[in-house]
Amino acid sequence: MRREADSLTLFAQNGAAPGRGRRLLSSLRRLYAVPSAAFGATIVIVFLALAIIGPLIAPYEANQQEFQDARQAPSKAHWFGTDHLGRDVFSRVLLGASEVLWLSGAGTLLAVLCGTGIGLTSGYLGGWVDELVMRLFDSLLALPALLLALLMLGAIGTSVTSVLFVILVVYTPIVARVVRSAVLSIKTRGFVEVARLQGESLGWILFREILPLVLPTLAVETALRFSYSIFLVASLGFLGVGVQPPSPNWGLMVKEARQSVSLTPWALYYPVAAISLLVISVNLMADGLKRVLQSPVE
């Protein structure tokens, strides 16, 4: 927070009123001052770009099988080689990026929205509703994340929608608890009390007085949840209970490629490399965000 204060003072000295956009920009600039975070953020942006233009530039269809080309080592025609069914690994990894980013991105967003809403209201209002919600969330959290996900998928069946739903249910309680604990410390602060004394509405207090102070924490939490969502989507794919074949899910690709690893090791290595790179990058970015947004200046 202090860091932020410093940069804001800088703006004032330049004679400009700090707007929301500037604040965001300065956060980004400070994020890029941390080398590991800059690396992470850049890779994440590259992945996002690839996810968007992937379908346009992929040389082959995800499930286009060319049996005569099966099990080919990487070459000019197939950069990452082909798998046991003759599918182009490069195209599948590329299309897998948009699949995993879309799924985990949307899931994270949903969970963050729900969690923030619940955490804000429950934390601010307190009382028995809060108690009840938190007990329920505690119980959900007593189930390890993957176990809960597996149970739910076992019950509602495996599909893209159910994976989204699973991410929502698994991560909403976590986000809500993080937001709630931030709200608990903010709501006792003087300005919230003054707002109540001035007869401000519940909406104003929640969204204008409290929410802005939760945002830094929330940004870090969102980045973390995003990373875990990627993790979860890939793991479920690998276990064969998430997205079903023939989808180009990275976890699923790894699962399939393991059968013939001695013949087509590239079909295993490239998706593994893609997952590792993406997850590490998101983590580096999240860590950078945490350092920029939450730690005081040293």
Partner: peptide, 22 residues
């Protein structure tokens, strides 16, 4: 509302009393 208007407060800690984002 009229009663609210009649009673106001100044806190000890001005750090706490002003929302840093307004």
């Amino acid at each position: 509302r009229e009663t609210l208007r009649r009673v106001q407060i100044v806190f000890q800690n001005s750090e706490e009393a002003l929302n840093p984002y307004l």
